[in-house]
Amino acid sequence: MAGVEGDLTGARRRRSTYSNASGGNCVEVADNLPGVVPVRDSKAPNGPALIIPAGAWVPFVQAVKGAALRA
């Protein structure tokens, strides 16, 4: 992952389908970078991105969809 954290200019981001139309609660992910999935708040495009290893992304999404993380 070296170097990826500092340069996300090639990231093609997409907004979560669960984001609302008025711009609130928006999460964007980029799934075109090898080995990592950067996640950011779309309301803060120049803010930090959370860099998740690609191997951890699918299990995380599956857990969320399966309600495994809901209290």
Results as ranks from 00 to 15, higher is better:
Ala49Gln: 15
Gly47His: 11
Ala49Phe: 09
Lys65Leu: 06
Asn46Leu: 02
Pro48Phe: 08
Ala67Asn: 14
Trp57Pro: 15
Asp41Glu: 04
Arg70Asp: 11
Phe60Lys: 09
Leu69Phe: 06
Ala49Pro: 00
Ala68Pro: 01
Ala67Gln: 13
Ile51Thr: 07
Leu69His: 11
Ala54Phe: 03
Pro48Arg: 13
Lys65Met: 00
Pro45Gly: 12
Val58Asn: 10
Ala54Cys: 08
Ala71Ser: 08
Trp57Ser: 05
Ala71Arg: 13
Gly55Leu: 01
Gln62Val: 10
Pro45Ala: 11
Lys65Asn: 01
Asp41Leu: 11
Asp41Asn: 05
Gly55Asp: 08
Gln62Leu: 09
Val64Trp: 07
Ser42Gln: 05
Leu69Asn: 02
Gly47Cys: 02
Gly47Met: 01
Ala67Ser: 15
Trp57Glu: 08
Ala54Val: 08
Ala71Pro: 15
Pro59Arg: 02
Gly66Asp: 09
Ala49Ser: 10
Gly47Ala: 03
Asn46Ile: 00
Ala54Leu: 08
Pro53Tyr: 04
Gln62Ser: 13
Val64Phe: 04
Lys65Trp: 01
Val64Lys: 02
Ile51Pro: 06
Ala54Ser: 14
Ala67Phe: 13
Leu69Thr: 10
Val58Asp: 15
Ala63Leu: 01
Pro53Cys: 08
Gly47Ile: 03
Val58Arg: 14
Ala44Tyr: 04
Pro45Lys: 12
Gln62Phe: 09
Ala67Tyr: 05
Pro53Thr: 04
Pro45Leu: 04
Val64Ser: 04
Phe60Pro: 03
Leu50Ile: 13
Ala68Met: 12
Val58Ala: 13
Pro59Ile: 10
Pro59Leu: 04
Pro45Trp: 07
Gln62His: 11
Lys65Glu: 02
Ala71Thr: 07
Pro53Gly: 12
Ile52Asp: 00
Ala68Ser: 05
Ile52Thr: 11
Leu50Gly: 00
Ala63Arg: 15
Lys65Tyr: 01
Ala44Val: 04
Asn46Val: 01
Trp57Tyr: 15
Pro53Trp: 09
Ala56Glu: 08
Pro48Asn: 07
Ala49Ile: 00
Pro48Glu: 10
Leu50Met: 13
Leu69Ser: 02
Pro53Asp: 11
Gly66Leu: 00
